[in-house]
Design a protein around this nucleic acid. Structure first.
Lengths: 286, 286
DNA sequence: CTGTGACGATACCCGCCGGGTATCGGGAGC
DNA sequence: GCTCCCGATACCCGGCGGGTATCGTCACAG
């Protein structure tokens, strides 16, 4: 009953699907099936009911799921504490310009409480790079928004925000109580600087290539709305200057707030951070 | 940082000697050294100071030792709880005739408290077989006394009792406040039945082959003292009938109360039982 | 009723890692 | 200086954890 096996088990128990669990674990399905079979042999009882309708936890599996999660969490804490003793405990968190919100502050507090002796370095980044410098290694974990190229990154979704169109308050469309992308077809959209993540650009452009002035950061984006009359897309719920208005966009996919980190990173604080964040955001009424 | 590696680490930390730790782990020394080196690489700091004077824990090692012990204990509890859920939790404890004492009752209570839903089957055995039927499989763990042939058994010492000579109260030696083996050279000693463990017989005979009536159990042993005038050896601190006296034997090795179990046994309750017993006996003022 | 797709299990292969033995190196002590 | 002790290193081997290909079974569509 090694920790690795338990991680496999927990993943399968969460997915209730061997194939998906295997891909989450970056392995193929057969070895995962075998590992679970071995674990069931060790435990002496089946952990899953494999019926054609799908995979379900047995009662023993339910017990093991709780226990295994607790054990794995404790194992993470062990790693963190030892790293703290070795003086190597600390992470750099990259935060996308507008991802800061009440969830982030609660996350910071909870993390501080659990790891009072580990360093936290915060790096605020602009909207140009949704990975906040993850790939360059300047950041260990990014609190950011999807979508972006996730190659070699692990991503955990925390929340999804509906989005709206930011308009000048005197724009005729500003009086509508909701809009569709088609309503904006003839507007000028801003452009991200060249080299920006294509998936990222595509999302904020409503899925199509658009034309318009090139902007770099949130503030410039808002300025562009004001001065250039472009369209701005933003998650709802943000305060805006009063001469700007935001109208819900009903046919655009919500903006997903996510955590991302480099897949192979062994810094134990990352896993811990992700766990805490998941719990905090789950308990935060969206 | 798998559990197996942590077990290795804890063993080395307890022994502070790679060779001894390796033999306790039933492996050779080089793979153990490598495993520890890998662990140190993972942690990012040395865990031991290897000086020619000996091996010592570093400060990081001390932290990891505490954490690893706690984690391994929890892992054991996980296994027990899952076994309980699977309905396969239970152990048979063999208790040597005279090993019952206050320690054993506290042990039973503590065990019951930690594993309320696991079966405990108790099997009282006579003094003939110090392993209480471990090898035959009729018992999972034996609360008994050393020494005995420990091949394929794991043994954990709990306590050492000084021993004394049991004599008829009217024996001239009974007035002495202590005795040596030499004082008993011309006495008749009882014999264990043929086939009894040689190390066991040798111990209770003071290290030499002796002659005398063959006895089987404690009661018969005391009867032999009374009726046959043999010598009896017994741990101090037991109540005896008033027509018998016990005089401390100052040059005989104390009798070690030990737990023993079959080395390869995977029943998770065994490890848990051993851990609880160790804690209980350590806190029991001998 | 049969073709097809989904999904977990099975069969089989390979590289690596966790075991082993033999030996080295260096410090302590007679 | 020789020897002993003890951890580290070198090197080898079998098994296990990974992989791919395929099967068996069930659900569903037509």
């Amino acid at each position: 009953m090694e920790l690795r096996t338990l991680r496999y088990f927990v993943t399968v128990a969460e997915e209730l699907h061997f194939g998906r669990a295997a891909s989450r674990l970056h392995m193929s399905q057969p070895p995962l099936s075998r590992a679970i079979q071995r674990l069931e042999g060790e435990v002496g009882a089946p952990l899953f009911d494999r019926s054609p309708a799908g995979v379900a936890l047995t009662s023993v599996g339910t017990v093991l799921l709780d226990e295994a999660r607790a054990l794995l969490d404790q194992a993470d804490r062990v790693r963190v504490r030892v790293a703290a003793a070795a003086g190597t405990a600390g992470i750099t968190v990259g935060i996308l310009g507008d991802a800061t919100d009440t969830g982030a502050t609660r996350l910071a507090a909870a993390y501080r409480r659990e790891h009072p002796d580990a360093d936290i370095r915060i790096r605020d980044t602009d909207l140009t790079d949704p990975t906040c410098g993850l790939r360059a290694g300047s950041v260990d974990v990014a609190l950011t928004r999807a979508p972006f190229d996730g190659t070699a990154l692990a991503v955990r979704e925390l929340r999804a925000d509906p989005v709206g169109v930011v308009l000048r308050a005197d724009d005729p469309l500003a009086r509508r109580d909701h809009l569709r992308l088609a309503d904006l077809a003839d507007r000028r959209w801003f452009q991200f600087p060249p080299g920006s993540d294509p998936a990222w650009q595509a999302y904020w452009n409503g899925g199509k290539p658009r034309e318009g002035p090139v902007v770099r950061v949130v503030q410039e984006c808002l300025q562009a709305v004001l001065w250039n009359g472009t369209i701005g897309i933003a998650p709802l719920g943000h305060d805006l200057p009063e001469h700007l208005a935001v109208v819900p966009l009903v046919d655009m996919a919500p903006s997903r707030v996510v955590l991302a980190w480099n897949e192979g990173d062994t810094n134990p604080l990352i896993r811990s951070f992700v766990r805490i964040a998941t719990a905090v955001y789950r308990s935060t009424a969206s």
